[in-house]
């Protein structure tokens, strides 16, 4: 009798869980699947009154058109260039800074850390106006340098904060032993701390990359030459011109999503870590 009741209870529990899980999966995945589906459809299957998720006659034409007849490949490479360089500079600068914050108790440390946390919350609209004027005066508008300078700095608070967390977990005794053996402080950092926190460095690098890969407002403001545009801005202007050509647009969007999809997959295990104080939003 009792086991009968328990069985009913378990059945009820699983029914609720799987109904909820199905709803969550549908809402999370369907729009993404719809993007992929549209990107493989011919126009005739798009402008129809009875849409289907699986294309009847799938085609690569949209990808062929996007890759062969538009600026999308150029935008993509521009984004890749800016994002990779941003990530590299940001990680070098941030790991030095994070090590300083992690291993030293110096006067001014707490105010500096609080500033780093606070700066992340600034609305970009405040910074973009004076930065635009500075870039204009330095003749840096319409160069990738303007984006590199901005993005590197904007990712620093996050990367410093995340890396500091990872460095804090490495026992100090390891470095002390190296120092006794005659290693310099910088040597202890590069030979002991950095290799041990490789996982953290990869995670921080991926967040820096995704930040730069996604950025829209600065890229739109600083760059208006077609051949220098990054993916978000290029896609938007492409969108303006081909407003009803959903199939190539979705193909371009899929291409735009692939790098961040790969990187998210790599970082997945570290996702929950250091995020709250780190304030990332994809």
């Amino acid at each position: 009798m009792k086991s009968q009741k328990a069985k009913h209870k378990a059945l009820f529990r699983y029914t609720v869980i799987y109904l909820a899980a199905a709803a969550v999966m549908f809402v999370s995945l369907f729009p993404f699947l719809w993007m992929i589906s549209t990107s493989f459809k011919p126009t005739s299957e798009t402008f129809t009154r009875i849409p289907r998720l699986i294309p009847k006659s799938p085609t690569l034409d949209n990808y062929r058109m996007v890759l062969g007849e538009t600026m999308i490949p150029k935008y993509f490479l521009n984004s890749l260039y800016v994002a990779v360089l941003t990530t590299a500079i940001s990680i070098v600068v941030a790991s030095l800074g994070a090590y300083g914050f992690s291993r030293f108790r110096f006067p001014g440390r707490s105010p500096a850390l609080i500033m780093i946390l606070g700066v992340q919350m600034f609305p970009s609209q405040v910074i973009i106006i004076p930065l635009f004027i500075v870039m204009k005066n330095l003749a840096l508008l319409n160069t990738h340098k303007s984006l590199l300078v901005s993005y590197t700095t904007f990712t620093l608070p996050l990367t410093v904060w995340m890396l500091k967390g990872f460095f804090d977990e490495i026992p100090r005794e390891l470095e002390e032993a190296a120092l006794i053996d005659g290693c310099s402080k910088l040597g202890a950092f590069t030979k002991i701390v950095l290799p041990l926190s490789l996982q953290g460095i990869v995670a921080s690098a991926i967040f820096a990359f995704i930040g730069a890969w996604n950025e829209f407002m600065f890229a739109m403001t600083f760059i208006n030459l077609e051949e220098l545009k990054t993916m978000p801005v290029g896609l938007t202007s492409f969108f303006g011109r081909f407003t009803v050509e959903w199939n190539p647009l979705m193909a371009a969007s899929v291409l735009f999503t692939i790098p961040s999809l790969i990187f998210f997959a790599l970082v997945q295990r570290n996702l929950a870590r250091g995020l709250v104080a780190g304030a990332v939003k994809g």
Partner: peptide, 26 residues
């Protein structure tokens, strides 16, 4: 893993995707 998917799509790409989803006729 499915729950993470909307986060992975770049903001501009998902905005365009949703514009397509919201399209009045199709």
């Amino acid at each position: 893993v499915s729950v993470l998917v909307p986060w992975v799509i770049p903001r501009v790409a998902s905005s365009i995707l949703w514009k397509w989803i919201y399209d009045d006729q199709f």
